[in-house]
C-alpha cells in the first residue's frame, strides 16, 4: 500500500516512523487551518484570504492525501510528473511507477477497510454534532446558525484525510527495494 517506487520519496515513506511524522505535520496544519476557517465563518467575515487558504487546503488534499483509491502520500500521476520520472530515472522506473500506482487485491481490501473505519468514525462524529446541535437549539437558538457551516468545514477536512491517515499510520515498514526484509 505504501508507494516506494520513487528514488527520493520511496525510502522515506517506506518507514512507518516517517509516515507518522508526516501525518502529524499534516494534521498539525489541518487543525489550525480548519479552526481558522471555522473562526472566519463564525465571525461572519468571509475574506479573500479565507477563500485562498480554503482552496489551498482542498488542492493539498486532492493531490497528495486524498485521491480516493490511491495510496497515501502519493501525488496524482500528472503527465508532467511521469515525464519527469522518465527523464530522471529512465523508462524502467516509469513502468515501476505505473505498477506502483495500481492497487492489487490486498491493497484494495486494505483501502476499503480504511474507508470503512474512517466512515465509522465519522458517523459517531456526525451523531455527536447532531446531539450538540439539538442541545444548542434548545439553549441558544442563535448557535444553530453557525453550527452548520462549522460542521461542514470540519467534516470536509476529516473526510478527505482520514482514510489515508489510517493507512499511513498503520502500515508497517516496507523495504523500498523489494528484496528481503
Amino acid at each position: 500500500m505504501i508507494p516506494t517506487s520513487r528514488a527520493m520519496a520511496g525510502p522515506f515513506v517506506a518507514k512507518r516512523r516517517n509516515r507518522r511524522w508526516m501525518v502529524g505535520i499534516y494534521w498539525g496544519m489541518m487543525v489550525p487551518l480548519t479552526a481558522f476557517v471555522v473562526g472566519r465563518v463564525f465571525a461572519r467575515q468571509p475574506s479573500e484570504w479565507f477563500m485562498l487558504i480554503a482552496a489551498a487546503v482542498m488542492v493539498l488534499n486532492l493531490f497528495t492525501l486524498s485521491r480516493l483509491g490511491t495510496k497515501p502520500f502519493f501525488p496524482a500521476p500528472m503527465l508532467i510528473d511521469r515525464e519527469m520520472v522518465a527523464f530522471w530515472n529512465g523508462k524502467e522506473d516509469l513502468a515501476r511507477l505505473d505498477a506502483d500506482l495500481r492497487l492489487d487485491e490486498r491493497e484494495t481490501q486494505l483501502r476499503d477497510r480504511a474507508h470503512f473505519r474512517a466512515y465509522g468514525i465519522l458517523v459517531w462524529f456526525a451523531l455527536g454534532w447532531f446531539g450538540m446541535l439539538c442541545v444548542s437549539r434548545m439553549l441558544e437558538p442563535a448557535w444553530s446558525a453557525w453550527t452548520g457551516p462549522v460542521f461542514l468545514s470540519v467534516l470536509i477536512a476529516v473526510l478527505l484525510g482520514l482514510p489515508q491517515t489510517l493507512l499511513a499510520w498503520n502500515e508497517p515498514d516496507v523495504n523500498p527495494t523489494g528484496e528481503e526484509e
Partner: peptide, 8 residues
C-alpha cells in the same frame, strides 16, 4: 500482477 509488498 501484484505489488511486491503483497508477496511479503
Amino acid at each position: 500482477g501484484v505489488n511486491y509488498q503483497t508477496i511479503g
